[in-house]
Design a protein around this nucleic acid. Sequence first.
RNA 1: GGGGUCGUAGUUAAGCUGGUUAUAACGCCGGCCUGUCACGCCGGAGGGCGAGGGUUCGAGUCCCUUCGGCCCCGCCA
Length: 706
Amino acid sequence: MLFSERVFCGQLTLGEVGRRVLLAGWVDAFRDHGGLLFIHLRDRSGIVQIVFSPEIAAADVCRRAAGLRAEYCIAVRGEVKQRREGTENPHIETGSMEVLVTELEVLSESDALPFAVSDKAMVAGAPSAGTDTVAEDLRLQYRYLDIRRTSMRDNLIARHRIFQCVRDFLDSRGFVEIETPVLTMSTPEGARDYLVPSRVHPENFYALPQSPQLFKQLLMIGGMERYFQLARCFRDEDLRPNRQPEFTQLDIEASFIDEEFLYELIEELTVRMFAVGGITLPRPFARMTHAEAMDTTGSDRPDLRFGLRFVDVTSVFAQTRYSIFRQILERGGCIKGINIQGQSGQLSKNVLQNEYAKEIVPSFGAKGMTWMRVEDGKFESNIVQFFSELELEALRGKFSAADGDVLILIADPSHATVTSALGQLRLHLANRLGLIPSNSFCPVWITEFPLFEATDEGGVTSSHHPFTAPDRADFDPKNIEELLSLRSRAYDLVINGEELGGGSIRINDRDLQRRIFAALGLTEAETKEKFGFFLRAFDFGAPPHGGLALGMDRAVSMILKTPSIREVIAFPKNRGAACPLTGAPSPVKREQLAELGLLNLGSQDVLPGTAENENRIDRLSWVSRIGLSADERPGMEDVLAQADALALLAAQNAGEGEALYTVAPVANRTRPGIQEKCSPLAETGQLLSRAPAVKGRFFKVASILE
RNA sequence: GGGGUCGUAGUUAAGCUGGUUAUAACGCCGGCCUGUCACGCCGGAGGGCGAGGGUUCGAGUCCCUUCGGCCCCGCCA
């Protein structure tokens, strides 16, 4: 058969009636009536019914057709017929026609399937079917079969459409798609890097990019002016439903622009992307400062689909008799609350006191919680008697409290604790009470982020990254107080409580950049070592520029309303960052490690006393970073047994000798009974004075060595 | 790293307070059936309950250990 004649199953129309066509695809469903045989033939475009009738097809064709099974890959030739009246199938697109087969070729047979590919039950709209879902692990193991299923197929095609829409739009705005390296240097994002050892430079490593951050800025300095890339990014952190170790970012950077340029560009882009999924986003996108977001929702990625905004009632209780509040306020604390309107029916005394006050809110980090229900114009709670009439009236006013409302207050000496706990509670309540409308989308730009955050060591660190422009340049890099008050020219795009993307206007003035590094406590030398090549570029006329990155997996997942981004990625990793299909990551041959110069890394750094666990083989394999296959293990056992024997021999032959110096208490195995001594140098700390990290009398080893 | 939850035929599940040969649906295999489309009818095969150990006269059900999946926190823009 000549595939050039092939037509698509899902695209047959009544216009084709009477034509002889060639179809190719997979056997989706199978109904054998003895003489008459119906098959749903599926290809990427959809499903059409093909009929094997002994009155039309040759006996040989019918015989072979009876041997077909689910997911056999076949090609058939036949005539398109309008279906007889009363035999149409309204559940499939091509349900008004069928193809009467005269020729059949089995292109490839299929084993019995690990799970059903066909969703024929769902096509028919039966409520009973489709409630069972196949375990995701199994789906990933047979992802190629999973991809034949309608939902994955549709997701991947929709993803493509969205990507295509992005490319078209950005092209129309003068953006150029440019690829940046995957084997590269560490970028300043702050997550753990994936490292790739270099064979040519033993013991040197490439880092996989956490984003193309440095390169996109270099492209601006390179005069490309408008760049974008659908870039793969890598971060070695624990996974979540919306987090994969490798993910796709729409990376954008432009020169001679300001924030408003990007707001307009990205709003238009995002609206178009969501439109591909039939979603109309409200415009213009809301804007909220970081401070306002934190004050009213306790989150820098606020979900604005519902209310439950925070109200600060600290001032109400300035003179309070209620001792818990008074003590907190005396320590400089604050009191904030939310009004859960009209939900007192769902939140009984018992639930509020025993679940929320005792369990849920403490699990969010707050010490406690105060609640009040409004019934018949009066407040009702376990502690209402401690509050004055004035305080209660002030609360009523601040919260606009009415009958059926429930007020929840959280007080704490720490402003951050109140905000964080109330923020978590806000989301918890919205979910539990079903306050989140299902088909609503609330995009918002979060602006005016703090430029720096305080570190535990009393310094500052960049909230975004060190190349983000501050809102003003006249600051003293030594004044921590002042540094913490600086805002950055960064912005995040948040939709429904999920951060879809973020970016900033970058610094293009080398002196300003230098002072930022100074503020971060980096010396000239450290800066040069880390970012030297990058900063050098700013010595040659760097244009003002800025950009943004959009998480495309998250965006597509949100547009398609999937519960996890794994549903919109063809071959995702599972929760343990492994691929159930390929088995990656996997051990490699010793020779490969040797060639990369990785065999001896860490082998001599085993701390005393740690290597004696039950399974020494696993232990040694782990410590030496050498994988042992099952058939190599018996040999290894032999080697260890010999080593044990030798050690025993050595112990027997050990003579009288001076005890060894030691910095850590150890058991003397070769000469039992002889007391160990601690080196005076260790006592004074001199011995460890040059060690990279010291804790007490021990020096710390990277946790990878345990 | 901490917490939760799940792991029973190919798949999806049921199996209550431990008790005779471990259930069901779909799938699979064989047979019948010329208008079905979750086709129908008849018959059949298939698991010893993730793994290991323990308690018990007796364990899928209880305990411990361990492995794996998913979810939350930490971590991560």
